[in-house]
Computed example of a mutant assay.
Amino acid sequence: MELPQKKFYRQRAHSNPLADHTFDYPTDPSSMDWSKHYPSYKGDKVRFLDIGCGYGGLLVSLAPLYPSTLMLGLEIRVKVSDYVQDRIQALQHNEPNTYSNIAVLRTNAMKYLPNFFEKGQLTKMFFLFPDPHFKKTKHKWRIINSSLLAEYAYLLQEGGIVYTATDVEDLHEWMVERLSSFPLFERLSPSEECSDPVVPLLSESTEESKKVARSGGKAYIACFRRTADPQNTLS
């Protein structure tokens, strides 16, 4: 089966996450039927979540590295999510044993994550090249912000990793400052980042990262570990 061509799925680069959209979502995680999204579904839980997955490059790169891990991309734009869905279906048709662990959903991650995922379910969350929302009045739309970090910490298991990447230095500093100041996240050391096999993919697997590389730009990367809940550290 031929892979889809992006030229037939063009859409605006960004979408207003606070605008009214129509989405289907479960009332709670136990109501979600994952079997229709994963062809070989056996009751496993989604562990990797790529928020704002764009054209799905990271999912496609991760799938063969972690073949037993279910991964999900979330995308708010209709045509882009349609492209990723068609891309995954083509890959699963051509190589069913390699790409049966990835899927995509169109939804608004700023509103509905707790409808899909349980406390401590996720082990990796990716925020790669998100909309910088340059205007100060729109900073509340940034996907990494103080009000949403508690939700991400709730969904990540202790020891889980948040990966961020952007070519906008101001946004990079914004995300690092907010994650660093949140009590349930600590930044990985440079040596820890170097030893993580996922980190190189952050700056080479996505459409945005490839654009940055072609233009000679720089990708700013920061990774944070979900630390233990305070009550779990008490003796």
Rank of each mutant, 00 (worst) to 15 (best):
S146D: 13
Q157A: 14
A153H: 04
D167F: 06
S147T: 12
V176Y: 07
N145A: 06
S146K: 15
S146Q: 14
E169F: 10
G160C: 02
A165K: 00
T166D: 13
L155Y: 05
T166Q: 02
L156Q: 09
Q157T: 14
D167G: 10
D167S: 11
L148C: 15
Y154F: 10
S147Y: 07
I144R: 02
E151S: 12
N145F: 06
L149F: 14
A165E: 01
E151Q: 10
L171E: 08
E158M: 06
H172D: 11
E169M: 13
A165S: 05
S146N: 09
Y163L: 00
H172K: 02
L149R: 11
A150Y: 13
I144C: 12
Q157H: 12
D170G: 07
E173K: 14
I144Q: 05
L171N: 04
L156E: 03
V168P: 02
H172A: 15
L149A: 05
Y163W: 04
V162Q: 03
D167H: 12
L171S: 07
V162N: 01
Y163Q: 00
Q157L: 08
E173D: 13
A150R: 14
A153C: 09
E158L: 03
T164K: 00
E169V: 12
V176M: 12
T164A: 02
R142G: 04
L155D: 07
Q157R: 14
H172V: 03
M175W: 06
E169Y: 12
T164Q: 04
T164S: 01
L149M: 07
R142F: 07
V162A: 03
Y163R: 00
D170T: 12
A153G: 09
V168G: 04
V176T: 14
N145C: 14
V176R: 14
I161P: 00
D170S: 08
R142D: 15
A153V: 03
M175S: 15
W174L: 02
A165R: 00
S146A: 11
G160Y: 01
I161V: 14
I143D: 02
T166A: 06
E151R: 07
E151V: 10
L156H: 03
S146Y: 13
V168L: 11
V168Y: 11
E151M: 10
M175H: 09
N145V: 04
T164L: 08
W174V: 11
G160Q: 06
W174R: 01
E173Q: 14
L149C: 08
W141I: 08
L171G: 01
Q157M: 12
E151F: 03
L155S: 02
E169A: 09
E158G: 13
T164G: 04
T166I: 07
V176C: 08
E169Q: 14
D167V: 04
W174D: 05
V168W: 15
R142C: 06
Y154S: 05
Y163S: 01
E151T: 13
Y154H: 06
L171H: 08
E169W: 08
L148P: 10
T166W: 02
I144S: 03
I161W: 00
D170A: 03
L155R: 02
W141P: 02
H172P: 06
L148S: 12
L148A: 15
Y163M: 00
E169N: 09
W141K: 14
I143E: 00
V168H: 12
E158T: 15
E158V: 11
H172N: 07
W141F: 15
A165I: 01
E158S: 07
W141E: 15
